[in-house]
């Protein structure tokens, strides 16, 4: 944007000015108008995707950069294992294949005793946009086993919930079972396992 004299200011900075009717540089009145010449120059600039280190070759204009980041197929996920920087690292975690997109089928998983184990629920053949879930069994003294379930999503936003989990834990020998129903947190695991 620019004032009648020609002093330029970007629209986000202009929006934070205490007085939008007067130029920030010369106090000229009349407000600011779009500056087509500067817009053309800025549109000609191309900025590399921040995920270039992960293989993204996209270069976008400034105003397209945020949209691209939100859908970049090269956005990374992280590994909940301390000290490991690669989600795809081979930890020997057992995995179970889900045949239906988004789940919706019942999977019976054995509960390990006395060890922390992470199990991967995935779709055969992978595929862009197919959800990946981690089920972690953690021994908690006095409580038994804690079982968080998370959806691994490189584009997750804080507080986001896209899936619901119905979890039944049972010990037939004790004629006992417990039902939990909760929304599954989506995360890119950048802060470790929730």
């Amino acid at each position: 944007m620019q004032c009648a004299v020609g002093h330029a200011i970007c629209s986000s900075c202009h929006g934070s000015l205490p007085s939008k009717d007067r130029c920030h540089a010369c106090s000229a009145g009349g407000g600011s108008n779009r500056c087509n010449a500067l817009e053309k120059i800025l549109e000609s600039f191309r900025v590399p995707c921040p995920n270039a280190a992960f293989g993204c070759a996209a270069a976008t204009s400034y105003h397209e950069a945020e949209n691209h980041r939100g859908s970049c197929p090269h956005a990374p996920c992280f590994c909940p294992e301390p000290g490991c920087e690669a989600f795809a690292g081979d930890h020997g975690w057992p995995s179970t294949e889900m045949t239906m997109y988004g789940g919706g089928e019942r999977l019976t998983l054995p509960v390990p005793e006395g060890t922390t184990t992470t199990r991967v629920l995935h779709h055969g053949g992978g595929g862009e946009g197919r959800p990946l879930f981690l089920v972690r069994f953690t021994t908690a003294p006095q409580f038994g086993t804690v079982v968080p379930v998370v959806c691994v999503d490189p584009h997750a936003v804080p507080g986001e919930r896209k899936f619901r989990c119905h979890l039944v834990s049972g010990f037939p020998a004790m004629a006992w079972h417990q039902v939990s129903d909760f929304q599954v947190r989506s995360t890119n695991l950048s802060g470790g396992m929730p």
Partner: peptide
């Protein structure tokens, strides 16, 4: 012991309410 897990996608209406 064992657990049975069933995961389903949350469906929402146009206002974002769970349905």
């Amino acid at each position: 012991g064992s657990i049975t897990v069933s995961i389903a996608k949350i469906m929402r209406d146009t206002r974002g309410n769970e349905i």
